[in-house]
């Protein structure tokens, strides 16, 4: 029984990824389709999330080494950071602050509960770090994980529109938009635009995580 969760997730993920590679349509994003299929499957077979997670947590455990592995793009591209450090640091501090402040204020404007508002705040950074930040500031990590995915998918739609209509020209800014706005899912999209954009996005994603980590514990209590 324990292996069933992993095996079904792996097969489902593989099929959904192939589907996305074939059609390349935003709403066929592998996470989204995989989620829909798995939830339907669990609901139909009356398997509880708890049972599924007992097996699926083996995959979740891989998130920490994957986060550690982000040091690789950082190390490879440290020269890009050295040339454009001012662009990255200033825009990402402001971006991280904007993410925390706007999510909490909008959540309150929408009359969402305090717990939800706190769980939305760290949503624009990569999942493992977002879940950790959520835990630290008193949110619900699982809920944050879901918000991170929604952020990623909406960012992939909004990003290219933003670049076109706000007339963003530099590859650095394009990368920063995706890395700050929608983490890993955005970085995958940025690599579709170009190598430099993708690299800047992966750099921004890591720096954005640091900025959010530094800002969230002090900003969130002020706003809630």
């Amino acid at each position: 029984m324990t292996w069933l969760g992993i095996v079904s997730t792996l097969i489902c993920y593989w099929v959904c990824k192939k589907l996305y590679q074939r059609f390349h349509y935003v709403f066929f994003n592998p996470v989204l389709t995989c989620l829909a299929v798995l939830i339907t499957f669990l609901a139909l077979t009356h398997v509880s999330y708890h049972t599924y997670l007992a097996s699926g947590k083996w995959l979740t455990d891989m998130l920490s080494p994957a986060t550690v592995a982000l040091a690789i793009p950082l190390y490879r591209n440290v020269h890009i950071f050295k040339t454009h450090w001012l662009e990255f640091l200033v825009s990402l501090i402001c971006g991280a602050a904007a993410a925390i402040v706007s999510s909490i204020l909008l959540a309150r404007l929408m009359r969402l509960g305090g717990m939800i508002a706190i769980s939305v705040a760290p949503r624009s950074v990569t999942t493992p770090i977002a879940m950790d930040i959520s835990q630290t500031i008193g949110g619900i990590p699982t809920l944050t994980a879901v918000f991170v995915i929604i952020t990623g998918i909406s960012g992939v739609v909004i990003g290219p529109l933003m670049i076109r209509y706000v007339r963003i020209r530099s590859a650095v800014a394009k990368g920063a938009i995706f890395g700050m706005g929608c983490h890993g899912i955005g970085t995958a999209r940025a690599f579709e635009i170009g190598q430099m954009e993708g690299t800047c996005s992966s750099l921004s994603m890591v720096i954005a995580a640091f900025m959010t980590l530094a800002l969230a514990p002090s900003l969130v209590p002020l706003l809630t």
Binding site: L35, L42, A66, A69, I72, L143
Partner: peptide, 20 residues
């Protein structure tokens, strides 16, 4: 490391199924 980064989306799946 690059395999983990490339397939990071997979590791998101179990925790986001928690939405149910």
């Amino acid at each position: 490391g690059e395999l983990l980064i490339r397939e990071m989306l997979l590791f998101f799946v179990p925790s986001s199924v928690g939405i149910m």
